[in-house]
């Protein structure tokens, strides 16, 4: 199970839960699982977030990136540049 870390704004949909264990081999699978568990969270994770796996920032919009069984997955606010 990967450990998923959420931001405080995600927690508005999770009853305040910020850290949880999720089964999923890819980012997409993790998001789907979270979206099923917490109504309203899906769009925020899909469109309004960046993702880091084990500290490495993933390409924007990624859903196929592999999530290892012991991975740390952080959902972050969207990162852009100038």
């Amino acid at each position: 199970m990967a450990t998923v870390h959420l931001q405080a704004n995600h927690a508005a949909f999770t009853d305040g839960v910020r850290e949880l264990e999720v089964d999923g081999a890819t980012v997409g699978a993790v998001i789907d699982e979270l979206a099923t568990r917490f109504e309203g969270l899906g769009p925020l994770l899909r469109e309004g977030s960046s993702v880091a796996i084990d500290g490495e920032l993933q390409p924007k919009g990624t859903i196929y990136a592999a999530v290892g069984p012991d991975a740390d997955v952080h959902f972050l606010a969207p990162i852009a540049g100038g």
């Binding site: 405080a8 309203g40 309004g48 606010a77």
Partner: peptide
Amino acid sequence: TLFTGDTEPSNIASVGPFQ
């Protein structure tokens, strides 16, 4: 307001707590 599900017009674009 983004990602809140709010349907009313607002001058708030986004709200993001970090804790």
